[in-house]
Amino acid sequence: MSKKIAIVTGASNHRDIGTAICRKLASKGMDIFFTYWKAESEWIQQFQQEINNLGVRCVGLDIDLSATEAYALVLDAVEEQLGKPTILVNNAAHSTNDGYLNLDSKTIDDHYAVNMRTVFLLSVEFAKRFKNSKLRSGRIINMTSGQELGPMPGELAYAATKAAITAFTKSLSTEVAPLGITVNAVNPGPTDSTWMTDEIREHLLPKFPMGRIGQPKDVAESVAFLASDEAAWITGQIIHSEGGFVRG
């Protein structure tokens, strides 16, 4: 993976999945460009230094991914500061509890802006710029949450907008395959990152037959594989890496 440049969206906290992905890809010799939002400046500086200490370059961008032109700003920034990216990991997501009694137009729009619009536009603009470069091998890796595997009551907007990523991944993979770009998605199942409380952990633990809850580093391992040369023949797939999580 040496000399490859990876974009990872949504790395704003030391417990984030995005942060774990950055660490893993950097350990493979990949330069890292990550986006964050509402993160502590001191931690961002420490995190960038941590990645730099792995022998790669690292740049962070403070950006609201719900902005209409956010996708172009991200790609312009990485090209200006690091070069042409070869890996795009669409990890950032917007999630709030709703349910049918509380769902309204603003809630839907807020989820759509981050979970769909920016993911879709980042992906297609990445592919357009890749086509006009001399690069021959690219990766787009999206994050989903297994919405097609079972219901998510109380999260209608999140479930619907994240589920759209599955259909988008499969269709885009066919269009950009001639460019040498693979497009896949990872469903990590419930992961013990910034959103879990002790109460949630206690409820979920019995549903994991492997005896533990998934960790951000587990997600990072799956993403790193899909970003590797060994995964060049895998495209249009949704990888359910849930540790045997039992729904219901």
Rank of each mutant, 00 (worst) to 15 (best):
I5H: 05
I7G: 03
T9A: 12
D16Y: 08
K24H: 14
S27V: 04
K28V: 06
G29R: 04
G29V: 07
I32A: 05
E40R: 01
E42L: 08
I51F: 10
L54T: 02
V56P: 15
G60H: 07
A67Q: 15
A67V: 08
A70D: 05
Y71H: 14
A77R: 01
V78G: 04
Q81F: 04
G83V: 00
K84M: 15
N91S: 02
Y100V: 01
Y100L: 06
D104G: 07
T107G: 15
D110I: 03
H111N: 13
M116L: 13
L121I: 00
G138A: 06
S145G: 09
G146E: 08
E148C: 11
G150R: 05
M152W: 11
M152C: 12
T166H: 11
T169R: 03
K170T: 04
L172D: 10
T174M: 11
G180P: 11
G180W: 07
I181Y: 08
V183S: 07
A185E: 01
P188L: 01
D192K: 15
W195V: 13
I200C: 14
L205R: 14
L205A: 06
F208R: 00
P209V: 00
E221T: 09
A224Y: 03
F225V: 00
A227T: 07
T235C: 08
G236W: 03
Q237E: 11
Q237G: 07
F245C: 04
G248A: 03
